[in-house]
Design a protein around this nucleic acid. Structure first.
Lengths: 259, 259
DNA sequence: AATTATATGATTGACTCCAATCATATAATG
DNA sequence: CATTATATGATTGGAGTCAATCATATAATT
C-alpha cells in the first residue's frame, strides 16, 4: 500500500543517519529498525545511495565518508573514473618531502588514497581539514599527518570556521591541493561561504596551488568565489581544453594538467 | 602447504592495513589482493579480528576505528557489554547544554554513540580529539561539534601533540570525559607520554572530570600517570567496589559511578 | 470523485557467503 | 633426520542476499 511521500522521505533520512551512526548496517537490521520488508529496505538503500553519503555492500550498507570506499569503482572493471586519474596527477605533483595541504571532498579523498600508494615518501608532512583524508592517510608510511581543528561541518565531513582558519596561521605549505564545486571563466567557486573563506585562507599560506576538479564542475557557477585563474593557480582536471575554452577558461600549459 | 610463520604474520599485518586504508574490504577482494583462497582469507580475517582493530561483516571486514560498529555486540543477544553501560552513565552525566570534552578510545567512542541517542539536547557543544567520536557525532542533532587539531596518532586514531594541547587553550569545559589504559591505587595512567600530556592539559580546562574505564583496566599500571584520585576526578566503571578496594582504590560515593 | 501513479510486500530463482571437513605439503621441533 | 604441528586450498551443504516480477492498497492528481 502506498504511503505518504513525507513519511518515505523521513524514513530514508533516518536510514541515512542510522547508517552514519553505526558505520555499517546489515539489511536484516534495517528491516527490524525501520519495520519494513527486505524489498523496501533495499529500495530505500538504493535511494539513499543515489543521493550519495552511503555505499552499498553485500549484505548491508556503509557510511561513505568514514569508509574511503573507493576500490569499488576501480575494481568493477570499468575505466578508472575521472577522480582517480586526477588524483594520480595530483600525487605526481607532490614533493617527496615538504608540507602540503589536502582539502576536503571526494576528489581529494581519492588523492589521499593514491598518496598511500607512493612508496618513496620520506618526510612529507600532510595537513588536512578532512576527516576522510585523515582516516585514509593515518595508515600511510612516511607521512606525518596533521589535522587542523575547527568546527565540524556535517555536510563536508570537514573542519571549518574561524578556529580552523586560525589554526592555519602557523603553517606554510609547499603546495595546496583544493577542490571546488564549480569552475567558469571567473574562476573557482563553492556553494558555502565558510568553505570558500577557509580555502582562501589556505591559499594565503601556500606557495603553489592545485585545484582538482572533474569535468562535471565545468561551467557551473556557485555563489562564493574562491580564486581566479591568475597564478599560482594550477588546474588539474579531466575536462578537454576545448571544453574548457568553450566555458571561457583559457590557461597556459603551465597552469593546466590533463588527467 | 604450510608457510613460514613470519610470512603469515606479515600477510595479516598487510591485511589489517589494507582494511584500514579502504575502510571496508570484501572477502573476494582480499583473496585477489593477498592472492590466497577464500578459506585463508576468512582465517586471516578471524585472526586479525581477534587482535582487534577490525570488525567482520557479512561479506567482508570493516576498519574498526572509523566504524563505530557497536550494534553488533548489542544485537547479538548477549548482555550489553560493559563499555556500553559505562557510556550510558557518562551520557546521563552530561549537561543538556554547555561544553564538554570527549577523549579518544573505544569506551568514549561508545559514549559518543550513546550521546546521539539523547534527543533532548539543545545547545551542547562537544569538543573532541578523536576522529571516531567526531565521525559518530557528526550526524547528531542538537550538537555543535568541534575537533581540536593536532598531529594524527595512528594508534589511537586521535589528534595529539603540542598543537593539540595549544588548541585547547581557549576552551573551557563544563565536563571532560576521558579514558585511560590502567588504574591502580596511584590513579589513572596511560602508556604513551603524548596521550598523558594531552589529557592532563584537558584536565586543566575542565570543571568536572569523568574517567571512563572498564574493569579490564583495573590494577594495570602503565608508565605515564595522568591523574590521581583527588577531586575533581570521578570514576565511571563496571568494576565492583570490592575489586576496586582490592586494588587500593578507595573512592567516596560522590566520586564513583557504577555502570 | 475518478483516475493515475507509486510505495509496499510477497515470491522466486540465481547468486554469494560461510562454517565445517578433509587431504596435503611443508614448517617447526626434537 | 624423523616426527609433529599447522597453514593451505578444495569441497560441500546450508543459509543469506539479491534483482526482477507481480498484485494490491493507497496517495497524488485531475
Amino acid at each position: 500500500m502506498r504511503v505518504p511521500q513525507h513519511l518515505v522521505d523521513r524514513r530514508r533520512e533516518e536510514l541515512r543517519s542510522l547508517i552514519r551512526r553505526d558505520g555499517f548496517l546489515p539489511v536484516a537490521e534495517i528491516c527490524r529498525r525501520l519495520d519494513v520488508s527486505e524489498a523496501t529496505a533495499r529500495r530505500d538503500l538504493a535511494a539513499v545511495e543515489a543521493n550519495g553519503h552511503i555505499t552499498r555492500t553485500y549484505g548491508g550498507a556503509l557510511a561513505d565518508y568514514n569508509s574511503a570506499f573507493a576500490s569499488h569503482d576501480e575494481r568493477s572493471g570499468r575505466a578508472r573514473p575521472a577522480k582517480a586519474r586526477i588524483a594520480e596527477q595530483a600525487v605526481a605533483r607532490m614533493p617527496r618531502t615538504g608540507t602540503i595541504f589536502l582539502d576536503a571532498g571526494t576528489t581529494l579523498q581519492a588523492t589521499a588514497r593514491a598518496l598511500t600508494q607512493r612508496g618513496d615518501l620520506t618526510g612529507l608532512v600532510v595537513v588536512t581539514n578532512s576527516l576522510a583524508a585523515a582516516s585514509v592517510l593515518g595508515a600511510a608510511k612516511g607521512v606525518e599527518l596533521h589535522v587542523v581543528g575547527g568546527e565540524f561541518l556535517n555536510r563536508q565531513a570537514a573542519l571549518m570556521g574561524p578556529r580552523a582558519i586560525k589554526a592555519l596561521g602557523k603553517w606554510s605549505f609547499t603546495a595546496a591541493f583544493l577542490g571546488g564545486e564549480g569552475m567558469d571563466a571567473a574562476g573557482i567557486s563553492n556553494s558555502h561561504a565558510s568553505v570558500a573563506a577557509f580555502q582562501q585562507s589556505v591559499l594565503r599560506h601556500a606557495q603553489r596551488v592545485f585545484f582538482c576538479l572533474d569535468a562535471s564542475k565545468l561551467g557551473r557557477a556557485t555563489p562564493h568565489r574562491v580564486a581566479g585563474w591568475a597564478r599560482p593557480t594550477v588546474l588539474i582536471t579531466d575536462a578537454t581544453p576545448a571544453r574548457l575554452a568553450a566555458s571561457g577558461i583559457k590557461l597556459p600549459p603551465s597552469q593546466l594538467l590533463r588527467a
